[in-house]
Amino acid sequence: MAAPESGDGNNGAARMVTLISSDNTRFEVEAAAASLSQTLQLTILDGGGGGGDGIPLPNVDSATLSKVLEYCIKHAPAAANGGAPNATAVDRAELERFDNEFVNIDQSVLYSLIMAAHNLEIEGLQSLVAKKVADMIKGKSPMEIRRTLGFPDPTPEEQAEMNAHMLEYGWAYE
């Protein structure tokens, strides 16, 4: 995981790979950053994505991919260090600030990020967006959760189920 192929070129310049979004936009990015994706890592280790080839990502549009790469580039150095050991408190605080700001986004973008992080298997990002949604859910009643996340209003039957549940699990409600 922490092997971003520095032995490949060994000439000082970081190795670059090209990623192609579903709407055919090409992104050139350091292999180390792209390798945060478990899905891409193997291809990159095999030497793919270099030169004119590029790695097609048919499930990710350019807006989302650009957002994902923003995350990867920010997190790549820390990941290359194997995470925490060398990171200073300042570095960590900076990453945390970045993460908080990063997920302060519209729900539609958040949804796309969730799907992309899942498809590309970027562990840190998966965790970040999942935490974001969990934060949106916590401290709310089922009705408030539905409103926040844009569910349709419950059918009378669903409403009855929710009421019955509140009676049964009174301790879980305030």
Binding site: I137, P142, I145, L149, F151, P154, E158, M162, H165, Y169
Partner: peptide, 8 residues
């Protein structure tokens, strides 16, 4: 528990 009862 509350989240689970948000929808079926």
């Amino acid at each position: 528990v509350r989240a689970a009862y948000t929808c079926r």
